[in-house]
Simulated scan of single mutants.
Amino acid sequence: MSDIEIQEGIEEYLKARKNVLALGRKYPDRIGGNDNIIGRIGEFIALRFLESIGQNPQMVEHSSNPGFDLLEGETQTQVKVITSENRKGRNVRLKKPWNQFLLIELGEQYKPERIGVLTEAQHQKALNENNWSKSPIVKLTMLGPKGLIGRYGKIYAKNELSI
Rank of each mutant, 00 (worst) to 15 (best):
S84T: 09
H123Q: 09
S133E: 10
R151N: 07
R90I: 14
E51C: 05
N91K: 09
E72P: 07
G54Q: 02
A46W: 05
V60I: 05
A157T: 08
L103K: 07
G39K: 14
K80A: 08
F49N: 05
G33R: 15
G116I: 11
E11F: 07
G107H: 15
Y156Q: 08
K154D: 04
E11T: 15
R93G: 00
W132M: 11
L23Y: 01
G42M: 01
L21K: 15
T119Q: 08
Q76E: 07
E74T: 10
D69S: 05
S63L: 03
D69T: 06
K95W: 13
G147N: 02
L143T: 07
E5Q: 15
M59F: 02
N159R: 14
L127G: 02
Y156W: 08
K96F: 10
N131I: 09
G153Y: 09
R30C: 03
N99I: 05
E61R: 15
N86R: 14
N91H: 15
I163E: 09
L50N: 04
A121I: 13
V20Y: 05
G9Q: 09
I38P: 00
G33H: 12
E61I: 05
T83V: 05
G89E: 05
T77G: 06
M142A: 06
G153C: 01
A157R: 15
G39L: 10
I31F: 10
A121Y: 12
G24A: 07
E113W: 06
G32H: 11
E11K: 15
L94E: 01
E5H: 13
Q109E: 08
E85H: 12
P28M: 13
E74Y: 13
D69K: 10
E51D: 05
A16Q: 12
P57K: 13
P97A: 13
Q7G: 04
R25S: 14
E72Y: 12
P97M: 11
P145F: 03
N128W: 09
Y13L: 08
E12Y: 05
F68Q: 06
L118I: 01
I10M: 05
L143N: 06
D29W: 14
N128H: 15
L148T: 03
E61T: 13
E160C: 14
L103R: 06
Q124A: 12
I45C: 04
E51M: 09
P136E: 01
N128I: 13
P136L: 03
V81C: 09
Q100S: 07
Q76C: 12
S63A: 09
P57E: 00
P57Y: 00
I31P: 04
F49K: 03
I104T: 04
A126P: 07
S64H: 13
P28W: 14
K15G: 02
E61N: 12
R17H: 01
S135M: 02
E129W: 11
Q55V: 03
G147T: 01
L148C: 03
G147Y: 12
L70A: 03
T77P: 14
L14D: 08
